[in-house]
């Protein structure tokens, strides 16, 4: 039943996130003709989708929504007055953490999947095509990066009290990661560029614009593995902090 609690706590945020993502993706597809007509240079449909959805606007929205999904937890429940009830249940704090993290990761993965479901489905209505397999590749990138971003917000929610502090700290953390990834020292280590990996820049650069419409490049599994490991570590540390914290 802990699953049920975690789902009930986050379902409104999840539903709003899903609607926002679907609306944005839908708008990108439906407005494609007008935007591409005003582009500085000829833009293939695949390139347009990548620029508008996977590289910039919708990805930015996804990152923010994932941060919002990561907020919550027992520390935040204290402000709502429900921490006492939760902590008096016969479940360990580790289990509370594990179920919340797992629920969140499933939601993050489902959100990442939405563009892959909508864009191939909607494209024929505007006389275009976008392969599901290709869209699914980007979804995997989003889900992998989203897992780490969710874990970052999850971690800050376990460390910082207050409604806004964890969100602000998460955004600041992501900006710091981006700055860090630009350091010359990390040239040749694409895994450190989380947002770069998520929008598939290297994927597109490697295969050129034409290949964007095809299921082509292999996914950066080492980078995705690293993000999964970082996410697990962050949730583990958050669990350790929560298990030892006093809830007075």
């Amino acid at each position: 039943m802990l699953w049920y609690k975690m789902w009930r706590e986050s379902r409104v945020r999840f539903a709003i996130s899903a609607v926002a993502l679907l609306w944005m993706c839908g708008a990108v597809v439906l407005l494609q003709q007008r935007v591409r007509a005003h582009a500085d240079e000829p833009l293939s449909y695949a390139r347009y989708i990548w620029s508008a959805v996977y590289k910039a606007n919708v990805l930015d929205l996804y990152v923010l929504l994932v941060i919002v999904l990561g907020l919550g937890g027992v520390l935040q429940e204290r402000a709502q007055g429900t921490a006492g009830f939760t902590l008096s249940l016969p479940v360990s704090r580790w289990r509370l953490i594990a179920v919340r993290a797992a629920t969140g990761w499933v939601q993050v993965a489902l959100l990442a999947l939405l563009p892959a479901l909508l864009i191939p489905l909607l494209s024929p209505f505007v006389g275009e095509a976008y392969p599901f397999a290709r869209a699914l590749q980007f979804s995997v990138l989003w889900a992998g990066g989203g897992m780490a971003i969710f874990a970052l917000a999850f971690f800050f929610s376990a460390v910082l009290s207050g409604a806004y502090s964890p969100a602000i700290a998460s955004v600041a953390g992501l900006i710091a990661c981006s700055v860090f990834a630009e350091l010359p020292l990390l040239d040749g280590h694409p895994a450190f560029d989380l947002l770069g990996t998520m929008h598939g820049a290297r994927l597109s650069a490697a295969h050129g614009a034409a290949s964007l419409a095809a299921f082509a490049a292999p996914l950066p599994w080492p980078s995705l593995g690293l993000y999964a490991a970082v996410a697990l570590c962050l949730v583990g540390v958050a669990g350790g902090i929560t298990a030892r914290r006093d809830f007075s």
Binding site: M1, K5, Q80, G81, T82, G84, F85, S88
Partner: peptide, 30 residues
């Protein structure tokens, strides 16, 4: 916590659940 019951000062229960849902939720642990 399996064998005792606690009623806190602020009676902080999950406001987003209905009475029936909260009963069903709590019942699952005992």
């Amino acid at each position: 916590r399996r064998r005792i019951a606690y009623v806190g000062e602020d009676k902080g229960l999950y406001g987003y659940m209905t009475v029936a849902e909260l009963i069903r939720f709590t019942r699952a642990f005992y």
